[in-house]
Nucleic acid binder design. Structure first.
Lengths: 195, 195
DNA sequence: CTGTGCTAAGACCGATCTGTCTTGTTCGGG
DNA sequence: CCCGAACAAGACAGATCGGTCTTAGCACAG
């Protein structure tokens, strides 16, 4: 395995592709609905190969969530850094980005919450979810600026609005909760004399 | 069946008890985790009896959600009517009531969202969930007062805060998001010069 | 050329779940 | 007193799913 022929998947590509395919199916149809046969088939891989890279289905699910966590946080951080003008802009683009996701068909809200709901007894999923929510709130805190919000309460409220708008947008199949939440965030930041 | 012996369950009691037991198990452990054998066993009835009152598991789940909808709305309406002083009080007690629920062990957030997550393809569950969220927002609207909030945007934001705080409280296992959301609702109502 | 390791394809096993059916029992009404 | 309906208990069938194993093909190293 010194050289990989172009177009052929290396072991890492194979694993990464499995995670990508599984994450898409799991999110779209649910963790319990989608079986490992389906994941292997749609990834163009034998089931035994899947089990060479993942000890069991739980590990595959965990790998999907960890990948999602890395992707989402990288995307959010990039979004914030792309609009560095004011705190209001930095927070606003995050809501707009979520609005973009919510407009796509098949939007079902936060994948971590979905996983936690389908596996209520799984401690690792619960811990990953807590970690994801902490990281999101921390991102809001840095977007607002620690000096403008020393207690972090403002970031906390923004995180609550973000979460609630995401849930209601997925239920209603509309972005209206997101625009309503964003308008409220703007009022909040202005009222706090931030930008 | 003119007279029911005291202590014996009539047909309606039997059905109602099945719904009660099923709803408790489904909420605590998940719809797919809990099987019909388990429900029948814990309700003290035979599986065939369960299938005499419900055509299949889906119907049992639907019955649980409909019962939950009736109970939750009755409870919330009673809560609002018990604190009729000001709009701030009426909305506040709803958050406090949710805080009371969130403090109990096993709190997992809104049962409708859990059901929708576990059965993403079920249209009846999705419709019941939308209906529940509409009713909740309408309750906030009446608690605030239509004349104070003609567009309903204020009630919409309160509903978003309510939803987000519920989700984050269940993830963090803490009532802090709820108190934070409540404080923000108070500020919102005051800023709108409502009570 | 030969052997080794990874792969696809799919058979296979055991566990679990939904839904039905059987059997025996109890109880209330005519 | 007796019949029929409802019940508990549990066997049963059919399907699904997670996970293992077998077989055969293929690429690459020596």
């Amino acid at each position: 395995m010194i050289l990989d022929v172009a177009g052929e998947a290396s072991a890492q590509d194979l694993r990464a592709n499995l995670v990508r395919v599984a994450a898409r199916l799991f999110y779209a149809e649910g963790l319990r609905t989608v079986g490992v046969d389906r994941v292997a088939s749609e990834a163009g891989v034998a089931k035994a190969t899947l089990y060479r890279y993942f000890a069991n289905k739980d590990d595959l699910i965990l790998a999907c969530l960890e990948q999602r966590q890395a992707d989402v946080m990288a995307s959010m951080r990039a979004t914030v850094e792309r609009a560095p003008a004011t705190a209001l802009d930095r927070v606003g683009v995050l809501f707009l980005e979520l609005g973009h996701l919510a407009m796509q068909p098949g939007f079902r809200g936060c994948p971590f919450l979905l996983a936690m709901t389908e596996y209520p007894q799984d401690d690792r999923i619960a811990e990953l979810t807590r970690q994801h929510k902490r990281a999101t709130r921390a991102l809001f805190a840095t977007a607002i600026g620690a000096e403008k919000d020393p207690t972090g309460n403002l970031a906390g409220v923004v995180a609550i609005l973000y979460e609630g708008a995401s849930v209601l947008a997925s239920v209603e199949g509309s972005t209206r909760p997101l625009t309503l939440a964003l308008r409220n965030v703007e009022n909040l930041l202005r009222a706090a004399a931030i930008d």
